[in-house]
Design a protein around this nucleic acid. Sequence first.
DNA 1: ATAAATTATAATTGAATTTATTAGATAAAT
DNA 2: ATTTATCTAATAAATTCAATTATAATTTAT
Lengths: 153, 153
Amino acid sequence: MKKSVKLSDSVHALVLISTDPFHNLTSARLAESIKTNPSFVRQIMSKLKQAGIIESVTGHPQPKLAIDPKSISLLDIYRAVEGDAPLLQLDTNINPECGPGVNIQLSLKDYYNVIQQNIEKQMAAIDLQSIIDNYEKRLENPKSDYLQLIADK
Amino acid sequence: MKKSVKLSDSVHALVLISTDPFHNLTSARLAESIKTNPSFVRQIMSKLKQAGIIESVTGHPQPKLAIDPKSISLLDIYRAVEGDAPLLQLDTNINPECGPGVNIQLSLKDYYNVIQQNIEKQMAAIDLQSIIDNYEKRLENPKSDYLQLIADK
DNA sequence: ATAAATTATAATTGAATTTATTAGATAAAT
DNA sequence: ATTTATCTAATAAATTCAATTATAATTTAT
């Protein structure tokens, strides 16, 4: 399946916005780094703005974080751009007449919920500042390269 | 993308195979409960068979678990039908020429890896027997119904 | 003021992946 | 032998993400 990379792209944009290694951070400039198009960048940024994570002004290419990167968690970003969709999907399109079947999915739901809660707890514990710190440490490390990124698909 | 429910459907099939509330468990019968088609059921079952989770014989509609449900984890089932795709996707299709961008994804990768490892640890700790036990408890509970399943999408 | 560049947003199209369907081959059961 | 069912592959349909296109509104520069 084609998996969404909106969370990854959002973090990408947020780190660039936060550290601003370029000047005049237009959506075109962000799109160039993410290798996507300016409009898609704006779609993501629009959601981050709605969530109160960034601030931006129409026609003014200087997006800023709206709050301290220490108080922006990975979960906040995920919720902003992906909503509350869980990572594991139940099959709700089963035969409602089949009692056993319905109860299997309901049983499974209990387990998915626990897993989802754990994932969210972890994502809530990771803040943008920490991702930035790790990024800056990597920037100093010459071993960090593209090959490493695409190593396992 | 269309979100995969192969894991949920696999558990669905495995619980029915294990508890066998119907007799002569044909792929058509399983498909009726999952509300899909017999061929798709067979596609899933083929992978479960390859993974050594079930046994079945061509033309013989009596699939069985190949091993004790206590030793079949949710992770085993996931790996069998979904492979080793992580739940959170990095964006590897970014601009390789952009050093900052590459290092952002590499930084994020560190966090995704930790999350993924935790998810897998949890999935490895959930076995099919436990899902079956919970299912049977629900079967006795008249409150368990289809509305409850589709409650939050 | 006017023009150029940019953000904001919506609508449409394209592409990738999942699920559905169809079909042909093999094996078991009667 | 005939029927039924699994197994597998190949193709079609459906779904969702991302790309593209288009329009409007706003800032900046001239």
